[in-house]
Amino acid sequence: MKIKTKSKKVNKAWLHDHLTDPYVKLAQKEGYRARAAYKLKEIDEELHLLKPGQLVVDLGAAPGAWSQYVRRKFAPKEAGVGGAAVGELNGTLIALDLLDFEPIEGVRFIQGDFREDEVLQQLRDVVGGRPVDVVISDMAPNLSGIESSDSARVAHLVELAVEFAQNHLRPDGALVCKVFHGSGYSQLVELFKRSFRVVKPIKPKASRDKSSETFLVGRGLKLQA
């Protein structure tokens, strides 16, 4: 009985934090599907990664807030509708997720598990040999609460994202990848340093204080031996 009461308290506290969260309110006001849009916005505004005309791949895209942000960046400014959520798109955006994804105009979506070769091949086919400008990855596994197991799952997704970036990014391209502080974090930083000329960890203000998530940004591919 006590466990149930504690669970209710936790749920109530989470709900209160969620409803009073300024980023949740802002997302509702500005039409984003999740507050996560502001994490990418902060990263982009600091590093100027995303520009109209690019080819961008969004991994772990559901529910679609990052794709919405990129899509608005790609709305042609010359048409006087910069930031538009619909209409003409100056750029190419490919989104992939295991979960279902409510369509976003102009965004090509692939549903499947990025860890499966068949799904990865679908993504390669859609990219079609074109050099990718930016890969953004908000992928995260279902966490079990067992740190060693969870860190291995996180690391595997990050390694796959880095491998995809090495194979498809243009030489001066960038990869943005969600990681978590804790076991295995320093090894992922080293992986980025081996793969990219410039590596920057960023903890956006839009990330919850209690969250161990941070984002690694790699720019400029190093030649692989």
Rank of each mutant, 00 (worst) to 15 (best):
K8D: 12
V10M: 11
N11R: 10
K12F: 12
H18I: 12
Y23T: 00
Y23H: 05
Q28L: 14
L40R: 00
K41L: 09
E42H: 00
E42R: 01
E46V: 02
L50H: 02
K51E: 14
D58A: 01
L59C: 03
G64Y: 06
A65I: 02
W66K: 02
W66M: 02
S67K: 07
Q68A: 08
V70G: 04
K73H: 03
K73R: 14
N90H: 13
N90E: 15
F101T: 07
F101C: 06
R108S: 14
R108N: 12
E116W: 03
L120N: 08
G129H: 11
V132E: 11
A140Q: 04
P141Q: 08
N142A: 15
N142C: 09
S149D: 08
R153N: 11
V154G: 01
A155Q: 10
A155F: 06
V158E: 06
F164A: 04
H168S: 12
A174G: 03
A174F: 01
V176K: 03
V176I: 09
V176Q: 02
V179A: 07
G182V: 00
S183F: 03
Y185P: 02
L188H: 06
P201N: 05
K203C: 03
D209S: 10
S212C: 04
E213Y: 03
E213V: 08
V217R: 02
G220W: 06
L221M: 11
L223I: 15
